[in-house]
Simulated assay, not measured.
Amino acid sequence: MPSMTVIAATAVPDHLRGALTRWLLEVTPELYIGSVSAKVREELWAAVSASTAAGTAVLAHPADNEQGFTLRTTGTQRREPLDFDGMTLIAFRRESQEAAKPF
């Protein structure tokens, strides 16, 4: 059964953006939404994961849990989803002290 799928993909190649728009609507730049089957969602996510060398992506879709959805990420991101007793929380990575110091 199709379910709502949301993918936010930043700095990904044009061919991946084209593949996503075959199945999902690009409602704003880099934000894709649609209702697809679990098989299509998994295939799209595999393509996104394989193509985000310099970019980042987040997938959100319904799940049978307390929050009603699950998150997956790929690429280097400052925000990282963590499982805390069955709930997804977002942890922020700190910038290293060396990167924060001006020269």
Rank of each mutant, 00 (worst) to 15 (best):
F69D: 04
L20F: 05
E66Q: 15
L44F: 04
L59V: 06
L16G: 02
L16I: 06
S49A: 15
A57Q: 03
L20R: 00
A53T: 15
T70G: 10
T76L: 11
H61I: 07
V27P: 06
E30S: 15
A46P: 02
T73M: 06
Q67W: 10
S51F: 05
D85H: 15
H15N: 10
F84R: 13
A9Y: 05
V58H: 01
A46W: 03
G68S: 09
R17G: 00
G18H: 08
R79W: 15
P81N: 10
G18M: 07
P62R: 05
G55D: 03
R79Q: 12
V12P: 01
V48P: 02
E30C: 15
E42F: 07
V12T: 08
S51N: 09
T74Q: 07
A57S: 01
S49L: 01
S37Q: 02
A63D: 13
W23G: 00
Y32L: 03
T28L: 09
E80Q: 14
A47L: 14
E42P: 01
I7A: 08
G34N: 04
R72T: 09
A63R: 10
T28D: 08
D14F: 12
D83S: 13
L24E: 01
D83I: 10
G34L: 07
L16N: 00
W23Y: 14
A54R: 13
G55K: 05
V12G: 04
E42D: 15
P13H: 01
T28Y: 07
A50N: 12
E80S: 11
D14Y: 12
A57K: 02
E42M: 11
V40H: 01
G18R: 11
G34S: 00
L31M: 10
A47T: 04
T21F: 02
R72N: 13
R79I: 14
V27Y: 03
G68R: 06
T52H: 12
L16E: 00
P62D: 05
L44V: 01
R17T: 01
L20H: 05
E43M: 03
S37E: 09
T56Q: 11
A60W: 03
A38W: 07
T21Q: 11
V40I: 13
G55F: 07
A19W: 02
T70C: 08
T70R: 13
V36M: 04
T28H: 08
G68T: 09
